[in-house]
């Protein structure tokens, strides 16, 4: 296999992950982005979704991120995210009930602002559920 690329996930509170990987696929705003060593420098928005860490040709680990930012330099790939949850740690039933609660919040929202906030949370919870139920890149 070719060179490895350093892959970091940093949260405001600490460094969440730091490992050398063959390839990572990151859910950027305009489509998933595979990053390998020697990738052109990029700064991008990250949408909520699954980060897949590849070792060779198969996925080794998956993490759910709730959006953030991506910075790629020649030898490093850094995701700034508040959380990175390993997919297998997501509690599916808890997320489902969360979705239900949030949909109620959306319909009961008193004003625009509240509604928007609830809708954003709802979209996030849905993305999380989807990530947990149907992992990408089998």
């Amino acid at each position: 296999m070719a060179d490895k690329i350093g892959f970091d996930v940093v949260s405001p509170e600490r460094l969440l992950l730091s490992e050398d990987v063959d390839m990572v696929v990151i859910p950027a705003e305009e489509g998933d982005m595979g990053v390998m060593a020697g990738h052109a420098p990029v700064i991008a928005n990250v949408r909520p979704g699954t980060i897949a860490v590849f070792s060779g040709n198969s996925v080794q680990k998956r993490y759910f991120v709730a959006g953030g930012f991506l910075e790629v330099t020649g030898e490093r790939c850094t995701v700034l995210a508040e959380q990175a949850t390993p997919i297998e740690d997501i509690d599916i039933s808890a997320t489902q009930s969360q979705i239900k609660d949030l949909s109620e919040d959306v319909s009961h929202a008193k004003d625009e602002r509240e509604k928007e906030a609830a809708e954003a949370d709802l979209a996030l919870a849905r993305a999380k559920l989807q990530a947990a139920e149907s992992p990408a890149y089998k």
């Binding site: 705003e29 305009e30 982005m33 990029v42 700064i43 991008a44 928005n45 930012f69």
Partner: peptide, 10 residues
Amino acid sequence: YEFEPNEETI
């Protein structure tokens, strides 16, 4: 850097 989608959005 390249920017995706563009500087303003990010």
